[in-house]
């Protein structure tokens, strides 16, 4: 997803100026996607260049320009909602690549790499669960609550995947008869080191 589509979706609710867009974007996505107002204005400028938004009038007394969505902007928004999101999950991919490299790099304690990640992901999951409880107890902002759910599911999936990796690594190690027994797990939080 791009900030572009996020802003288009917010403008579909009605004309808004930059600061409002930033505030509403953060309300919808919680703290998960902090935006600075500069990013908002840069994106608005590009959207205006592509004629997907247009100024809704003159600047107000405080110099703020209100933007509105255009018909091509609406079409683009509709297209976005119709299209599936392609997986370009950078952090997750980085983890997969890191694990793949850990397995194939001599001297790396894969179990420690997995555990370091597991502990970090679990902490994230604990924090998300707290936020979700607070969201459920509060006014019940559905949008924010659903974003949190998505993050919870992702963290949970990552934990399962880490378990899976560990099991497979253990099996592979057991299959290699000439390998020495797995080293004891080092101090928690330790980075994987080359021996």
């Amino acid at each position: 997803m791009s900030i572009r589509h996020g802003l288009l979706a917010l403008l579909e609710r009605g004309p808004r100026y930059g600061y409002q867009l930033r505030a509403e974007f953060e309300t919808a996505t919680g703290a998960t996607w902090p935006l600075n107002v500069g990013q908002v204005y840069t994106t608005l400028a590009r959207l205006e260049r592509d004629e997907l938004v247009a100024p809704a009038g003159e600047a107000d007394v405080e110099g703020r320009i209100t933007y509105r969505i255009t018909d091509p902007g609406r079409a683009e928004l509709a297209r976005w909602f119709r299209s599936p999101v392609t997986r370009q999950d950078a952090p997750r991919d980085e983890l997969a690549i890191k694990l793949a490299l850990a397995v194939t790099t001599p001297g790396v304690d894969v179990v420690a790499v997995v555990q370091t990640q597991r502990s970090a992901t679990m902490t994230t999951l604990q924090e998300l669960t707290r936020l979700r409880t607070r969201a459920d107890d509060g006014a019940g902002d559905l949008a924010w609550s659903l974003v949190l759910d998505a993050l919870v599911f992702r963290a949970e999936a990552e934990m399962r995947w880490l378990d899976h990796c560990e099991t497979r690594v253990a099996r592979a190690a057991a299959a290699r008869v000439d390998e020495p027994a797995a080293a004891p797990v080092p101090a928690p939080g330790a980075k994987a080191v080359r021996r």
């Binding site: 555990q115 597991r118 502990s119 992901t121 679990m122 999951l125 604990q126 998300l128 669960t129 919870v152 963290a155 949970e156 934990m159 399962r160 928690p188």
Partner: peptide, 12 residues
């Protein structure tokens, strides 16, 4: 993991 997420502390 989802249920452990409710804990203050998770011990491995």
């Amino acid at each position: 993991a989802r249920h452990a997420g409710w804990a203050d502390r998770v011990v491995f």
